[in-house]
Design a protein around this nucleic acid. Structure first.
Lengths: 203, 203
DNA sequence: TAACGCTGTTTCTTTTAGTAAACTTTTAGA
DNA sequence: TCTAAAAGTTTACTAAAAGAAACAGCGTTA
């Protein structure tokens, strides 16, 4: 019996409950219209029949993976991009301002973090300003290490940037470093005053 | 999979040339084994028949979009993750330092960008410092708008931050804003000297 | 080594997707 | 506003994918 319940209601035990709506069709149409293309043009670009494209846009079919790949190529978009949209909640049309010094404080023994723009929750990046208290590498029990990538900009003072795979390096105001955060890393101040840095993390 | 019989042998105009191999099956199997799951377990989690899963892993079919969605949910993975692999490599264990003023310059009529940490290519974030030349909103022909999210920190001077859905707001040194970059946005200096800002973009 | 349970593969049937062509609607031109 | 062309939709049919069940391979156990 198996269902093709694209238009029916899913019950709690229906395996289809796992599937989010994700209006692929709507998205495809949007992109096509933005570029000012007709179905025929997209058809030529992708090798997909005009009729098939129409059905996809109107959610009358669930295109196969090969078709989706052709679509992506033909519409000239990144692969993830097409899908992501709906599944990964976006911050669509939002904006969040943090005034100087008004971030959310997160003090630790070695760092004094100030989390910026904390009112938007699901974001790709986490920016924070940090006063570096630590003066020596020994103050850390072990490497800091986590998923994702990190960008660091020295706003004030001087720091030593330690990392697992490289020699320590001194960074002055205005210098920046971008690194894989799964590689152990820590920072200590080398200026007389505690250094201040900006950190942006992306998972 | 399998090519359409209606199409002739591959030529420069063969639409199939656009489609990358992208071994979805191999990838799915990898993930399943990593988690130590059997086909049956995945079947229960996803609601996809064991036999179908086997065929997918062995590239005997090109699963439909609904099936792909179920797979993603069931395997508990981000959507992009599944596909990306081939195209996006990680920066594993890398580090890249840019000294003050030593970024890659990208001047435009309204902004003077300095791209930071440009030697690492495939990264999640793109950081750059910008001198804001523009003094009035009119200098822009239209909204700047692109995929992803953006973080902005004022390093020096004052700016007006314009965005499609909000009233303009003045930001001073140390203020920051985080926003959806697909919402139209532009920035102009309001201080006597051109303002300097840090921008970090994530797709 | 026979029998069992569990894994993954294959076969077979049903259901769905994909195409060409017919059809309908919209747009543009005189 | 009439007409022609082009855009999008639906139909009718073929090709392909999804599922159920049969099958084959492999350790484990008796």
């Amino acid at each position: 019996m198996v269902s093709r319940p694209s238009l029916e209601t899913a019950t709690a035990s229906d395996p289809d409950r796992f599937v989010e709506p994700l209006e692929l069709g709507k998205r495809v149409k949007e992109i096509r219209l933005t570029k000012g293309w007709t179905l025929e043009e997209v058809s030529k670009r992708t090798g997909i029949a005009r009729s098939t494209l129409s059905k996809i846009e109107n959610d009358q079919v669930s295109p196969s993976f090969t078709i989706v790949q052709k679509l992506i190529k033909g519409l000239g978009m990144d692969l993830p991009q097409l899908f992501v949209e709906a599944s990964e909640h976006s911050i669509a049309g939002r904006r969040d301002i943090t005034r100087k010094g008004k971030g959310e404080p997160h003090p630790t023994a070695t760092y004094e973090h100030e989390l910026l723009n904390f009112s938007i929750s699901r974001k790709k990046m986490v920016p924070f300003k940090t006063k570096v208290r630590a003066r020596s590498f020994d103050e850390f029990k072990e490497w800091v290490r986590h998923d994702g990538e990190e960008f660091l900009l020295v706003l004030e003072g001087r720091i030593n940037f330690f990392s697992e795979l490289y020699e320590p390096i001194e960074l002055k105001e205005g210098d920046s470093v971008y690194y894989d955060a799964s590689m152990g890393h820590t920072v200590v101040s080398t200026s007389s005053k505690d250094a201040e840095i900006l950190w942006v993390v992306a998972r």
